[in-house]
Amino acid sequence: MISLYLPERTWLHGIAAGHKLIALALVSLLVAPFDNLALMAGLLLAVLALYASLGRAALRQLSLLRPMAPLLVLLLALHAWNGDIWLGVSLCLRLLAMILLANAVTMTTRMDAMMDAVEPLLRPLAWFGASPRAVALAVAMMIRFVPLLFALWESLNEAWRARTGRRGGWRLLAPFCIQTLKLSHHAAEALAARGGAPRGDTR
C-alpha cells in the first residue's frame, strides 16, 4: 500500500484528507446524472491536468489504467451493439476520470490521515459495540488497496508479456488471485504485529 503513496510532497498533500474525500464524493455525485460526451471529456482532461500538476511520479501512475482496457472495450462493444456507441464513450471517460481522481486522493493521503478523516463519521457505531477506529482502518485499507490491485495486475501482465510477447488477459486470473490472497495475508500479519486496532477504542 505504501508503494503507491507519493513520497515527494505536492500541493495536494497539503490539503486535509477530509476535504479531499468530500471533494471526491461531491464530484462523483455531480457527474453521475450526466452522460454528455463533451462534459466527460472535459472532466477527464481536468483530472489529467491535476496529475500533470503533481509531477512526473504522478503521471507515471497513469499506467495503472492498462488493466482497465478489457472492461472499457467490453463496455464500448455492448453500447455499440445497442446502437449507442457515443454513450459508451461518455461512460468510459467518466469511469476513467473517477478512477484517476480517487487514485489522486490515495496517493497524496497518508493512511493515518485517511483514518482520522473517516473515523468521526463512524462514531455512532460505538453505540452498537463496534470500534469506529477498527472500521475506519478497514475503510481506509479498502480505498488504498484499489490502486494497489491495479498495479499488481499490471506487474503480472508485464511479466507475462516479457515471457511470451503477448498480453496475459484471462490467464492472469489465477496468479492474480494468489497474489491478492498473499497481499491480504501480509497485511493481516503486519496489523497483528502492530497490535491491530485497539479493541476498546471508541473515539
Rank of each mutant, 00 (worst) to 15 (best):
M142W: 05
P70M: 11
V47P: 02
L43S: 07
R203G: 10
A102H: 01
S155H: 14
R203F: 08
V146Q: 02
L6H: 11
M1C: 05
A25E: 03
P70Q: 10
E8A: 10
A192S: 12
S53C: 06
G129Y: 05
V146P: 01
L45M: 12
L21D: 13
G200N: 05
T202R: 15
H13A: 03
A192R: 13
R171C: 07
L71E: 07
G42F: 00
I15W: 12
L6P: 09
A187P: 00
A16W: 03
Y5F: 15
G165M: 12
L29P: 07
A188G: 06
L76W: 15
A187S: 12
V27C: 04
R123A: 07
A102N: 02
L149G: 11
H13G: 05
I15H: 02
G42D: 01
L64G: 02
L152V: 13
G169W: 08
F145C: 10
M114R: 11
L183G: 15
G14M: 03
R56Y: 03
R163Q: 14
D112K: 10
I178T: 03
V31K: 00
L44K: 00
G83H: 10
A58Y: 01
R123D: 04
L96Q: 09
T164F: 07
E158N: 09
F128L: 15
R167K: 09
E158M: 02
K20P: 10
L172R: 09
S131G: 08
A52F: 10
F176N: 05
G14V: 01
T109I: 06
I178W: 06
A41K: 00
K182F: 05
L91P: 02
G83P: 06
S184G: 10
L24G: 03
G195H: 06
D84W: 02
A126E: 11
T164D: 06
S90Q: 10
W127Q: 09
Y5T: 07
L4I: 11
L156V: 04
L64P: 00
A80Q: 15
A57P: 08
A159M: 08
V139R: 00
A49W: 07
L183R: 11
N82D: 15
A174G: 10
C92A: 14
P70E: 15
D35R: 07
R161A: 12
M141T: 14
A187V: 14
M115R: 10
R60F: 11
L181Q: 14
M1L: 15
L48M: 05
M141H: 11
L122W: 07
R56W: 08
A130E: 08
M111W: 09
D35E: 11
P67T: 08
L12D: 13
A25N: 07
L43W: 03
L54G: 02
A190Y: 00
I99M: 14
R133I: 05
N36E: 08
L45W: 13
V89Y: 13
P70S: 05
L93C: 04
E8W: 09
G169I: 06
M114Y: 12
L6M: 11
L48T: 02
I99F: 14
L183N: 12
L87P: 00
A46T: 04
L30E: 01
